[in-house]
């Protein structure tokens, strides 16, 4: 079974109520976002970028077994 880890940070982690989720049987980041936004509708109202295995992705990316997907709200370091 294909498993992925979802890491969330900042305002996204606030909405999800946790920073580390294990999910299975998702084949793309689009599919993941649809599932998360259904479960956590507030996610639709905030901006965030997606990284797969530490690389930012644009559009939908396919997910391999053990992929690490990070949900990244706008950075505010410094």
């Amino acid at each position: 079974m294909k498993e992925i880890t979802v890491l969330s940070f900042g305002a996204v982690a606030d909405i999800l109520g946790q920073s580390n989720l294990k999910l299975s049987n998702l084949s793309s980041t689009d599919e993941l976002m649809q599932q998360l936004e259904k479960e956590y509708p507030a996610l639709k109202n905030i901006p965030y970028a997606i990284a797969v295995n530490k690389q930012l992705v644009t559009g939908s990316a396919s997910l391999e077994h053990n992929a690490i997907v990070a949900l990244l709200p706008p950075f505010s370091g410094g």
Partner: peptide
Amino acid sequence: VVERIKKELPVWGK
């Protein structure tokens, strides 16, 4: 470096 840190590093300030 300062500009790039603020723009590119995944760091969040609460």
